[in-house]
C-alpha cells in the first residue's frame, strides 16, 4: 500500500532534528507539525514569526496573528515577531535549516516547479522562490504521479521553475528519493511498494 497523506507527513517529520528552525509549506507539509513528537522544532512563518503555535480556540482568533497561508494561528512562549525583510533575510541567509514543500514537478537535477501552470490562473510565487534558494535543505512532499497517472518525478521539469537544482530529498506516496550526482537514488520504498513499482512510476533517471 502506498503511503497516505498522513503517512507521508509522518515520514517527512523524520527529516527534522532537535533544535531545527523549519518552514513548512501549505498542504501535506502543514501536517508534518503533527508528527514531530518530542523533538524541539521551531516553525517559521515567513510573514514574520518564529515559534508558530496551533490554530486558536473558537472565539480567540486575532486578526493581527496569521500564518503565511493567512490562517489565524497562536503564539508560543518562544515566539518572536519581525518584519518581512528580516524574515526573508533569515531565509536567504541560510538560517532556516529546512523547508518542507509541496510540488507539481521535480526533476532529477533537483529542479523544482510548484508555482505556475502556463495558460492557467497564475496567483504568484509568494515566498517559495526565496525559500528554495535560501534554506539549508529542501524536502519535497508530493504524490508520485498526477491524476492522469503521469510521473511527477521527471528527467526535466516541463513547468516554469521555482528554483534550479534546489531539491535535496523527495518524499512521495511510493517512497523516498535523494537528488545525487547523475540522477535520483532510492532511499526507501513505502511499506508494500516494491522498488520495481517505484521505478516504473518514475520518469527520472534512478542511479
Amino acid at each position: 500500500m502506498p503511503w497516505d497523506r498522513n503517512q507521508m507527513a509522518a515520514r517527512a517529520a523524520e527529516e527534522l532534528e532537535d533544535g531545527m528552525y523549519v518552514n513548512l509549506g501549505i498542504g501535506i507539509p502543514t501536517l508534518v507539525a503533527n508528527y514531530v513528537g518530542d523533538k524541539d522544532i521551531t516553525l517559521q512563518s515567513e510573514n514574520g514569526m518564529l515559534g508558530m503555535g496551533p490554530f486558536p480556540f473558537e472565539g480567540e482568533e486575532d486578526p493581527d496573528l496569521i500564518n503565511a497561508g493567512k490562517q489565524t494561528i497562536t503564539e508560543l512562549r518562544r515566539t518572536s515577531y519581525f518584519d518581512s525583510a528580516t524574515s526573508f533575510g533569515m531565509i536567504r541567509g541560510g538560517k532556516i535549516a529546512a523547508a518542507i514543500l509541496g510540488a507539481m514537478e521535480v526533476a532529477e537535477n533537483g529542479d523544482l516547479a510548484n508555482w505556475m501552470i502556463p495558460g492557467k490562473l497564475v496567483k504568484g510565487m509568494g515566498g517559495a522562490m526565496d525559500l528554495v534558494a535560501g534554506v539549508g535543505r529542501v524536502v519535497v512532499v508530493m504524490d508520485h504521479t498526477n491524476k492522469h497517472g503521469d510521473s511527477k518525478v521527471l528527467r526535466e521539469c516541463t513547468l516554469p521553475l521555482t528554483g534550479k537544482g534546489v531539491v535535496d530529498r523527495i518524499i512521495t506516496n511510493l517512497g523516498v528519493l535523494d537528488v545525487v550526482e547523475g540522477g535520483l537514488k532510492i532511499v526507501e520504498t513505502a511499506d508494500g511498494v516494491t522498488e520495481e513499482e517505484l521505478r516504473a512510476a518514475t520518469e527520472a533517471t534512478i542511479v
Binding site: A85, F88, G89, A128, A133, G163
Partner: peptide, 29 residues
C-alpha cells in the same frame, strides 16, 4: 518573489539602488 519585494523596499529606504540575490536564479524572474 516575496523576499525580493521586501528587500527591494528595505534597500530603497537604505539608499541601496541594487543588490544581488540567489532567489529566482534560473527562473522566469
Amino acid at each position: 518573489p516575496q523576499g525580493t519585494l521586501a528587500e527591494r523596499m528595505r534597500a530603497g529606504g537604505c539608499g541601496i539602488p541594487g543588490f544581488y540575490t540567489k532567489t529566482g536564479v534560473g527562473t522566469v524572474i
